[in-house]
Design a protein around this nucleic acid. Sequence first.
DNA 1: CGACAGAACCGTAAGGTTCTGTCGGTGCGTTACT
Length: 497
Amino acid sequence: MTLEEKLYNWFGYSSFRPGQKEIIEEIEKGKDVFAMLATGGGKSILYQLPAFTHASGLTLVVSPLISLMENQVQELKANGLKRVTSITSTLTFSEKQERMARLQEWRLLYVSPEMLNAPTFLERLKAQPIHLLVVDEAHCVSQWGHDFRPDYLDIGEKRLQLGSPPCLALTATATPTVREDILKHLHMDSKRTSLFCHSMNRPNIGLFVEHVQGEEDKKSRLLDIHSHFRGPMMIYTMSRMVAEELAVWLEEQTTVRVAAYHGGMEAQERLMIQQQFINGSLDVICCTSAFGMGINKPDVRCIIHYHIPADLESFVQEIGRAGRDGERAASIVLKAPYDEDRPEGMIYHTYPPVETIKHLLMMYVEDNQTAEQLLAAWDEEEELYGRQIVYALKRMGWFDSDDQLYTANIERMAAHLSKWVEERIANRLQKLAVMKKWLYATTCRREMLVKEFNETAGQNSECCDVCGAEWPEVAVKKDLKVSEKGWRDRLQQLLGE
DNA sequence: CGACAGAACCGTAAGGTTCTGTCGGTGCGTTACT
């Protein structure tokens, strides 16, 4: 059976999208593959097809968000592909046991890197031949792994323990440095890995940066932008509070249907807002970086950065959510003078101060605690610090087999940890510096952006403000809020006020 | 680390200056199988 026939029989598609077939062929040969494909470019079929059509074995997918896993599982099941599941913390203990007991039945299993790192789970998994290990959103290995979710850095080691199955790393955006980082941490041999890198450039998204004086200017520009674009928009801010305040303010000032979205909100509410935006019953989302992964809405016309992101990769990820339908769209950064220094505070805030490191190490010495006991002593706000430190210590090999810390040389450990923190901060400040440089670009912004990804810009229908481009004209839609309000009123009348 | 809001201070009062406290992103896991 040809690949096309398999595709039709199992998924009902009559042809592949550009680039898909070549990648699947490499996977079927058992090779390691790194694939950078534009979002919405059909990444999941790359491993789903081999997973179901291959004679035997399990395809293990490591995915960053539980909601993404659940979406995928639901979608496949709805298409009649039943031998797929996920194992996550949302399940009860017995549900987890039940799904693990049926490992040989599943063709496709979705898990988080943290779950993969759980010893009991890994032991069960080792008994099962793994046909392919997929790392979805692989940029998270580099972007989140080094401090926020350290388990990401262990996927490569777990891969070895699972008998080194072939590995497929998937992402939409990765700079050359991030790419190398991913290959290194997943133990993919760069000489023997097939690389498929489609351009990250999105020619239909115009790039604009506006240097404004302060909050008032930003807000008045928001109104201008809103009345120009009309269509669905996303507004990124750096704080949860600002996201909420902006949503309220826009609601008062305009007729737009708007909601806030950030990581501090209830999961159910987040899900609801996400769906309302996707199905068109919300026009604008004021959000933090929590919003976006897995959002595949074709007609987003404008991405506004009310605050600047801390690096260009995040920026590219975020603006990439505009214009998926190929129609004209825009990225607009509103930058006030002090904005460029804002992320710096956040970067420092992420890592434990040197005194904290020493304090933690002294606690180890005095109480002779294990890593787990020590982590339990940290309160929630400091949990991240505690985890970073414990993780760094583990990496440096300073725990014995009983999870006890070697306490021979605390001063030396503290020095090493401080150096590690300094390097992380320096690394992120460096990335921020590139972001700042881009904001002050005096030559074509697109050229500069794609150059960071080792590409050239080529033909673009929209360019940037430096090149003299204007906001793209987009089809003006009807004023949605008015009809929505009418609908609400009618419903209220039906319900008897 | 650093921006900002609000309180405290100065004092003819009013409004300006200084001080203090608060705020700042992304998510997973967490229980025990016979």
